[in-house]
């Protein structure tokens, strides 16, 4: 079902609870009573059109905003993506890490295996961090430069340098490797390890990993379906400019 501006935001969340962290990243807090999506956006000074595109892209795998895409400034998208990045780095990853650590401190017999899991997760964490840093330091400055070039219909020296040093096609290539490790971790914990004494905590960790994966999938859908196609179009028109 398509999410529309006159729906109650509470109903939207009932429809898909995965949207809770999304609206939070927009600075919207729960407790909005019967207010509609449009009302809440206005109150929180969130761009309604962008909000709708985003929640719909999150909510429906097959949703692909084509025409609407053109109207959203890249800057808004980048800001949003940065907010999700910081929520991964500051909250989600360390939450899971903490749980693994407390699993480690509880059990004595299975120490060795839990250490394996922990090391593996650390490896995954640093890979994801690296991936995110690459986006923040290379990809985002690039797309912002592209937008500026379009806006001014002109190159500054610095923008030209950035534009020539990268292209969005390069970004598309390296997108899958990070997911691999997360999937492996789940597989190992489900198929090949016997849970330690505190199996409840162990189960929670697995569920957290599933949720993280789901959230990351949503996240990369915004990058792949909203940001990338938009930048490809802009690249083309810059090439015409040259």
């Amino acid at each position: 079902m398509r999410i529309k501006k006159d729906m109650k935001l509470a109903d939207v969340i009932q429809l898909n609870y995965m949207l809770i962290p999304v609206i939070h990243r927009f600075g919207i807090n729960l407790g909005f009573g019967d207010k509609t999506v449009a009302d809440v956006c206005k109150e929180n000074e969130v761009d309604l059109n962008f909000f709708l595109q985003l929640v719909n892209a999150y909510h429906d795998k097959d949703y692909f905003p084509k025409e609407e895409l053109q109207t959203i400034p890249v800057k808004n998208i980048v800001n949003y993506l940065k907010m999700t990045h910081s929520s991964y780095l500051n909250d989600k990853l360390s939450e899971i890490e903490q749980k693994i650590i407390s699993l480690q401190s509880e059990d004595t017999e299975d120490q060795k295996y839990i250490l394996l899991i922990r090391n593996f997760f650390e490896g995954y964490k640093s890979e994801l961090t690296e991936h995110i840093m690459h986006e923040e330091n290379v990809v985002f400055p690039y797309v912002l430069a592209v937008e500026e070039i379009i806006k001014n219909q002109n190159f500054t020296e610095r923008n030209r340098e950035i534009f020539e040093s990268f292209s969005i096609g390069k970004y598309e290539e390296g997108h899958n490797d990070v997911e691999e490790k997360l999937m492996d971790l789940k597989t190992i914990m489900i198929k090949y390890l016997t849970p330690p004494a505190n199996s409840t905590l162990y189960h929670t960790i697995i569920q957290d990993l599933f949720k993280l994966e789901e959230d990351l999938n949503y996240h990369s859908r915004i990058e792949d379906k909203v940001l990338t196609p938009k930048v490809i179009l802009m690249e083309k028109s810059i090439c015409n400019l040259i």
Binding site: K112, Y113, L115, L116, I117, F120, G123, E180, K181, M183, D184, L185, T187, I188, K191, Y192, L193
Partner: peptide, 22 residues
């Protein structure tokens, strides 16, 4: 067969099944 793709994942499997030691 194992459903594990990454090298570090395969390493964990190998340790768990005593193919190599930690």
């Amino acid at each position: 067969k194992l459903g594990i793709k990454s090298v570090s994942g395969l390493t964990v499997y190998a340790i768990l099944h005593n193919l190599i030691s930690m």
